[in-house]
Design a binder for these strands. Structure first.
Lengths: 189, 189, 189, 189
DNA sequence: TATGAATGAGTTTTCATTCAT
DNA sequence: CATGAATGAAAACTCATTCAT
């Protein structure tokens, strides 16, 4: 028992410390201590700190992608899908603030542009696919699909940053529907 | 001559290295070398690295704020002001990619929420003031002013990140007007 | 094996270098090299240079106190105790010149008066207790006990500094008895 | 005016800062600032910090020697001279605590044994001359003259350290005469 | 003479990584 | 597998000293 439990302990401690202190300020020793393992043990599961960071990021990113894509195919139109996605994002973000902070920290990491494959690509592709279809159908504005996708992502990010600070506001169905309306208005043709 | 030239050299080297490598990865020695001064000279102009970071940030931030607010009062409605602001942001960002990167890096620094007075406050206040007025006049959607302001900011950020990658697209008046339309649609009542 | 051997190596190297070069002039690197360990290893055993200094001092001080107090209760009168103590001091000092130099260096460190608990207190108290008793019995001169104690300490220090330079002289029982006589004459009523 | 005034300002500031902070902790900049001159000016009057330290020490030392020797030839016996000297030391020390602190600091500087000519030699020689004569006359104990001189010096130092802490005690003629008696008893044959 | 900006060697300290047990 | 002592490269910062003005 616990063979891969160690790995999980390390990941969880790393998520918390990276989110709270940042990737540089959290030391391998800090994480080891928080995870209840020895420093050397870290290197049995992750070949380097850089690797740990990447794996932590990918893990958070994957959680996010999956949470965001949940139930999208139940929706008909592109706008419905994007609004559903907003709900998903918000749920994920409010229930997993550490993981969503990791994503943001990693995204603004210097040199992140030099790490192709790491960053947001799949997420953007998923959104872009929906957006492209919507543009094709004349449902969405006629702008480059990646621009629209990025715009959508920007709005969603703005909103979850806002509601992270005031989570109870998002409980109001009225507020939620008006937020969806912002999405609809901004993107629809 | 050159007395305060040294200070400028250091600031410029710091802006470039911080933007390219990040605040932690760029060492004082790196910056000194890039600025063509000795390590010790850095400390004649900036008492500590943290202080250098703060001053670099404030300098970039101030440039940004001033560029963004230029000519806003020539515009009548809140939406006009916000669209003009989008143009300003885009101009600033395309002509000063390093400075605008510094701003983003600083904003996502760990512990940045604990540094009051440093971060974006004035910028948000400027936007919020416009937004609030627009809401009051029934011109903008009836949502919390800070949420609308943050949404606007999110869209603008999304757009400038997009156009930084494809700057020539922003040259098209057609694209520009459709971008403005996204702003209008998303915020107007 | 050798686990706490490292700590000892470091302490010994530190004692030698501090005694020879002084606390400021001996760098952590110097001491590490002399101890045959890496710089980083120093910080496994001592959290800072200041801490190393304090621990080195306390170690020397404790050796001294214990050596000086040995067998004092075998002596009857205050003067006998103080003469026995002189023998002890001299033995300690001649056999541990580095340790006794550390004590003097530390005592004359700037700011040492601001470090209560560090400096000589117990040593003085021990002497003072003997002196006070001797004054009470009319055996010693009627002067403030702390003045007499300090005077005794001054004589003893003067003597060990002298005999450190000419150790073979102290081998002469004749010289020793005349030194004791100096103590007796100076303090007795 | 003030040509050599600068030199004096620097010396006085150095005496104060060295006495208060120690030779290493007081920086050339600190002293320059305290003296009201520019850093570069320091080097017009003193070729190096080490040299400044030495000159400061010699200045204090000379003051001390002169103050201590004052009026000695008015006294007849060796013991009278040594008691008079004690008065002189005490007066000097109580009126010039900084200068006397400098002497002590310098004396316990590491490497001071490697600086022949700097340290106490003349002072000891003066005392030794008196002591030798006293031994020759049978007035003082038959011990090596340098040992007796050092003992005398140790007692005097102990006393002035004591009375620096409680200066008003030294005002009592009774206390003073008993202190002189300690000197007499300890040294006389 | 006087200045103070500039220098760079040197200091303390941290931390990712290795490896013998 | 797990440990944690040991390492040393690298970082921030200080300060005596120089030198152009």
């Amino acid at each position: 028992m616990g063979e891969q439990g160690k790995r999980k302990q390390i990941m969880e401690a790393a998520i918390r410390l990276f989110a709270e202190e940042g990737f540089e300020a959290a030391s391998m020793q800090d994480i080891a201590t928080a995870a209840g393992v020895a420093k050397g043990t870290m290197y049995l599961y992750f070949p380097s700190k850089e690797d740990l960071i990447t794996q932590v990021y990918r893990y958070c990113y994957r959680m996010d992608v999956e949470a965001c894509n949940a139930g999208l195919d139940e929706e008909g139109t592109a706008l419905d899908k994007l609004c559903r996605r907003l709900d998903n994002i918000m749920d994920f973000t409010l229930s997993h603030p550490l993981e969503s902070r990791i994503e943001r920290l990693y995204g603004s990491r210097p040199g992140s542009m030099r790490r192709p494959g790491d960053c947001l690509e799949e997420l953007y592709e998923d959104i872009e696919a929906v957006v492209e279809e919507g543009i094709g159908r004349g449902e969405l504005k006629n702008l480059p699909a990646d621009l629209l996708a990025q715009t959508y992502y920007g709005i969603a990010t703005a909103m979850y940053l806002f509601f992270q600070a005031e989570p109870e506001l998002w409980q109001s169905e009225d507020v939620r529907s008006r937020c969806r309306q912002v999405i609809r208005d901004s993107l629809s043709a």
